[in-house]
Amino acid sequence: MILDIYKDALEYSAKDWKTLVILGVICLFSFLFLPAFLITGFNYRVINTAVHGIINGRDPLPGFDDPIDMFIDGVKVVIVQVIYLLVPMIIFLVFALIAGHISGIASGVLIFIGCLITLVVGVAACLMSQMGICHMAYNDGAFSKAFALSEIKEVIDEIGWFECILTYIGLIIIVFVISVVVTTLIGIIFALFGVSGAFLGVDPSGILLLGTFINSTIAMFIVGPYLSIFASRSMGLLYTMQI
């Protein structure tokens, strides 16, 4: 089941390279603050198609029409994530405050327990926020559905907590591995160019600089958007896995 999700998501994200480039351009301008929400809005659209579609179906990639709608969706997603992540942060702060007022070994023990609880709650909050966004998308973007905790819990129960967390961790590993592998590959290629150039008596610094430039360009325009679509699609498909 998990592998099917990954396979579908990997294929889905590679469907249209134009979308990836457009996303990359938006990403380039996200220092203006507004486009960052467009990217999350686009990811929300991906989730939206995924939760309404079926796995290994022929869902098309969402388009970039109606940017205002996309922007508002992005704002919604960010708000949901921020509110969910506030919970573990507040728990950690409470523990840290209490631990700051007592001394000795008790404070160390307390902060350790606090960290453990924060970790558990944090993982749960990440999962719940992703599932909350999927649940919101499934219910036509009704904001209150993102915080309908009992409904979301039911959804996760039906999928199975273990599968959910496994998918989530697997997702993180895949994203990490892909980005590292791509960067290293390009790095090695240009290092080879540079070294062979140096043997031929050319100054290698220019080639290395070009390598770094191409590396960051590819990371921004192809790999980054690809991975973000991949992650959103996987979460959306995971939501549809309930029996």
């Binding site: 205002i68 709608d69 922007f71 508002i72 919604k76 036509d140 973007g141 009704a142 904001f143």
Partner: peptide, 14 residues
């Protein structure tokens, strides 16, 4: 209207 946030979308386009 499916969601009340559609009001916001409509307002932004207005």
């Amino acid at each position: 209207m499916a969601s009340i946030t559609d009001c916001v979308v409509e307002g932004l386009k207005y």
